[in-house]
């Protein structure tokens, strides 16, 4: 048995050391949401290691002390029913740990589901839609659309409205924050922000068929000034997107990065408000959000009409 513990110990050491010196994407956050998540992850790893060590210690103690080869030939183990206090401790400590983790979990849930705090500006709204096997990014305020790459300003909250032109996909930029599903019949909202300029990789994390592995995109987080420059440059140089062109982009396959002026939302709106797949008249997620002013109005205007279907 000793060999096994040595192997396990070695694996655990390797794990810790490697996590320490070569930052893993998720543990190398570049924005407040990813930071929250990394903090929760590291905290839970610490607490869980305590439990693992406790179990290992008790197990090793029992195995070393009570192995048959160490007992006299005629040793008869006693009959022990159970002990109230021992079992109370075995319930009590885990309950305390779970209670504490629940507190952390709830707190962090509300954090990652809200616009990150501490920024002066209003969030930048980007519609991110997936089609087999590409990502379309529409900037309604800037009137720009990109394919398979994102430009985002640092130090400003980002509000991604996610939906899909095909199977369920998940929009994920590990260094900026966790993923959320993009689905065909409703829009979900993911709140992120980037604090550090840089290039990050993003991908679809939810299996969506043959071309899933390559459904990736680049994220360029740049300073607000640079972002404005980029917007201006696109608006002067890129061609407008047309409905025919967009239909072609939706065909299954892989494409490189492309840039357009205008957004496909004009002729093919996102499935929210009156365009939702199964609008429940005010129950859908966006209506809870404070920042979805534009769509919210649309939403309430038409919710009665939707009920008639």
């Amino acid at each position: 048995m000793k060999i096994k513990w040595m192997i396990l110990a070695a694996i655990l050491t390797v794990l810790t050391v490697l996590t320490g010196c070569e930052p893993l994407a998720v543990l190398d956050p570049k924005g407040p949401q990813a930071q929250t998540q990394a903090d929760v992850i590291l905290l839970s790893i610490a607490i869980m290691s305590f439990i693992v060590i406790a179990v290992f210690a008790i197990l090793i103690y029992m195995l070393v002390k009570y192995r048959a080869s160490k007992q006299p030939e005629d040793y008869k183990p006693p009959h022990i029913e159970g002990n109230f206090w021992v079992e109370a401790i075995c319930v009590g400590i885990p309950v305390l740990i779970v209670a504490y983790l629940s507190f952390v979990s709830v707190e962090s849930n509300y954090k990652v589901e809200a616009t990150p705090e501490g920024y002066d500006e209003e969030p930048l709204v980007v519609y991110a839609s997936s089609s087999d096997w590409k990502w379309h990014f529409s900037y309604p305020e800037e009137n720009i659309e990109t394919l398979n790459y994102l430009y985002v300003p640092t130090d400003r909250p980002l509000e991604f409205r996610l939906y899909s032109y095909g199977p369920i996909s998940a929009f994920w930029i590990p260094q900026l924050g966790g993923q959320k599903y993009a689905m065909a019949d409703m829009v979900t909202t993911l709140h992120l922000a980037a604090d550090v300029p840089g290039e990050y990789s993003g991908r679809n994390a939810n299996f969506s068929g043959e071309g899933f592995a390559e459904q990736t995109f680049n994220v360029n987080a740049v300073s607000p000034d640079e972002f404005d420059e980029w917007v201006e440059e696109v608006q002067t140089t890129a061609d407008p997107i047309t409905e025919d062109e967009f239909e072609e982009l939706l065909e299954p396959g892989h494409l490189g990065q492309q840039t357009f002026t205008g957004t496909h939302l004009e002729f093919m709106p996102a499935p929210e408000g009156e365009h939702g797949g199964h609008n429940h008249g005010g129950e859908s997620e966006e209506s809870h959000e404070e920042h979805s002013d534009q769509s919210d109005d649309e939403h309430s205007d038409h919710s009665e009409h939707d009920h008639d279907h």
Partner: peptide, 20 residues
């Protein structure tokens, strides 16, 4: 070890990073 990582996955905010 498998079980405690399940507790980690159960923390939904962090699960956004573990999921899939």
């Amino acid at each position: 070890i498998g079980g405690v990582t399940g507790v980690m996955l159960g923390m939904s905010a962090a699960d956004y990073q573990y999921h899939n």
